[in-house]
Lab assay of single mutants.
Amino acid sequence: LLPSFEIGAWTEDDVYCWVQQLVRKGDSSAEMSVYASLFKENNITGKRLLLLEEEDLKDMGIVSKGHIIHFKSAIEKLTHDYIN
């Protein structure tokens, strides 16, 4: 489970856990499981996660359009939940 809904306070480890949970919950393929490490390697914290754009995801090595859409949708939901 994630430490809190205060996404802005999430550490790199918290984001890593979130990506792992996202991959487990989704209908995503096994190749998506490597993405948790990509987020950690790129020092993505909660604040940075909320700022990620499609180009950032591509720069991190996420090239599948479907996977990018999956992440963007999940990040938008997080942003919405965080604001409300």
Rank of each mutant, 00 (worst) to 15 (best):
L1Q: 15
L1M: 15
L2T: 15
L2W: 09
L2K: 14
P3Y: 08
P3W: 04
P3H: 12
P3M: 11
S4M: 09
S4Q: 11
S4I: 05
F5E: 15
E6C: 04
E6Q: 03
E6L: 02
E6D: 14
E6I: 03
I7Y: 00
I7S: 04
I7A: 05
I7T: 02
G8F: 08
G8A: 14
G8L: 13
A9P: 04
A9D: 14
W10I: 01
W10G: 02
W10T: 02
W10S: 04
W10A: 04
T11Y: 00
D13V: 02
D13F: 02
D14H: 06
D14W: 01
D14V: 06
D14Q: 06
V15H: 06
V15T: 06
V15M: 00
V15D: 05
Y16P: 00
Y16D: 09
Y16M: 10
C17Q: 12
C17I: 10
C17F: 07
C17Y: 11
C17S: 13
W18E: 03
W18S: 02
W18Y: 05
V19D: 07
V19N: 00
V19C: 03
Q20M: 09
Q20G: 05
Q20E: 15
Q20F: 00
Q21N: 13
Q21P: 02
Q21C: 03
L22W: 03
L22M: 11
L22K: 04
L22N: 06
V23P: 09
V23F: 10
V23R: 11
V23I: 12
R24D: 14
R24K: 12
K25D: 13
G26C: 13
D27G: 12
D27C: 11
D27Q: 01
S28C: 13
S28G: 13
S29E: 11
S29F: 10
A30T: 12
A30E: 15
A30L: 08
E31P: 05
E31Y: 04
E31N: 08
E31I: 06
E31D: 14
M32V: 05
M32H: 05
M32Q: 08
M32R: 01
S33C: 07
S33Y: 06
S33P: 02
V34F: 15
Y35E: 00
Y35F: 05
Y35M: 01
A36K: 01
A36L: 01
A36G: 08
A36N: 02
S37H: 13
S37L: 04
S37N: 13
L38C: 14
F39R: 01
F39L: 01
F39N: 01
F39K: 08
F39Y: 02
K40G: 02
K40E: 06
E41A: 11
N42D: 12
N43Q: 12
N43C: 10
N43A: 08
N43L: 06
T45R: 00
T45F: 06
T45Q: 01
T45V: 06
G46Y: 06
G46H: 06
G46D: 00
G46L: 00
G46V: 01
R48G: 03
R48N: 06
L49S: 01
L49Y: 05
L51R: 10
L51H: 11
L51F: 06
L51Q: 15
L51I: 07
L52C: 07
L52D: 04
E53G: 10
E53Q: 15
E53A: 08
E54P: 04
E54G: 03
E54S: 04
E55R: 09
E55K: 14
E55L: 02
E55N: 06
E55W: 04
E55D: 08
E55M: 06
D56Q: 03
D56W: 03
D56G: 03
D56V: 01
L57V: 00
K58G: 02
K58H: 15
K58T: 10
D59V: 13
D59E: 14
M60S: 01
G61W: 05
G61L: 02
G61V: 03
I62F: 07
I62S: 06
I62T: 01
I62G: 02
I62E: 09
I62H: 04
I62A: 02
V63L: 11
V63F: 03
S64N: 15
S64T: 13
K65I: 07
K65D: 10
G66H: 13
G66N: 15
G66K: 15
G66F: 08
G66I: 10
H67Y: 06
H67M: 13
H67A: 13
I68C: 08
I68E: 02
I68A: 09
I68G: 04
I69K: 14
I69W: 08
H70S: 08
H70K: 08
F71P: 00
F71H: 04
F71N: 02
K72A: 05
K72E: 00
K72Y: 07
K72P: 00
S73F: 06
S73W: 06
S73D: 12
A74P: 05
A74Q: 09
A74I: 09
A74T: 03
I75L: 02
I75V: 04
I75F: 04
E76V: 04
E76P: 00
E76N: 11
K77Q: 07
K77N: 08
K77E: 15
K77W: 03
K77Y: 03
L78E: 00
L78W: 00
L78T: 07
L78I: 01
L78N: 02
H80D: 11
H80M: 10
H80P: 06
Y82N: 12
I83R: 15
I83Y: 11
I83K: 15
I83D: 14
I83M: 14
I83C: 14
I83Q: 14
N84P: 13
N84L: 08
N84M: 06
N84H: 14
N84R: 12
N84F: 08
